[in-house]
Amino acid sequence: MKPASFSYLLPKTVPEAVKMIAEHSGDARFIAGGQSLVPMMNFRLARPSVLIDLNRIPDLSYIKDRGDYIAVGAMTRERMIENSDIVRDMCPLVHDATLNIAHLPIRSRGTIGGSISNADPAAEYPATMLALDAFMVAKSERGEREIGAADFFDGVLSTSLEADEILTEVRIPKAPANSGSAFIEISRRQGDYALAGIAAQVTLDDDENIIGIQLAACGVGPGPVRLNQVEDGVRGTTLTAEILSNAKEAATAAVDPEGDVHATAAYRRKLTGVMTERALRKAVLRAVGKK
């Protein structure tokens, strides 16, 4: 299990990186944290002929408060995110999601940009960004554009990034006042990819009516799945047992997962409902608790 040969390029700036990818587009790949790519290379299931290493671009590693949103540089490591006060205070769902990612040594190296552009359907960040309506900033020699999460994730391990584009920044809207969130997943073991996971954020008014709800699932579709219909059933209500039970049922119906050696499709569907119920309950409790 040794990787095939490749040429190694080490840009120090974003302009250098986009120039390199433009020159080698097609057979080059960026490497961010490498926690998904290197295993694939060791199995020789991925064999880029050119590897452009983003790990020495200092400008891509930061967490900044920009008023309405926080901006996270694509090469910011998950360990930095889990330890960030800004993230914990302003985007608590991202903090929660980060703690569910694999294990400590993987988070030492893994980056938010790597996870999002790898777009594993079972990964925590894509679902979280989808739920929070985050924006991805992509750069190429052609310029810069901002892509909404709903347009960004595009099927299994696929995004709307063009071959010559690099993800440079993730813009995550701050949690509103009176909001609460929860990331809940079930996996066969601690740190494994979720059989089903839910990213949830709710916003309450003064009477504890749910005026805002954002829900997305991981592990149960070709990519992260926004649970719009479930949101519609919950928005404008207070969270009664009946509403919860309806949400659970609606979530079960909303996804179309595939079965594999770890779980049947039916079981993943069922778990989607259960995780939805649990995430909603926890998010609302947290919102109430904050008041």
């Binding site: 490498g34 290197v38 290493d53 790990n55 360990r79 040594p105 190296r109």
Partner: peptide
């Protein structure tokens, strides 16, 4: 395992425990 699961290759790099099988030496 050489795919980042077992942890036998874990070393500490710049203060953080890291899988040395998921990094190239040049990095």
């Amino acid at each position: 395992c050489e795919h980042g699961v077992c942890g036998a290759c874990t070393v500490i790099i710049d203060g953080f425990a890291t899988r040395s099988c998921l990094m190239f030496a040049v990095q």
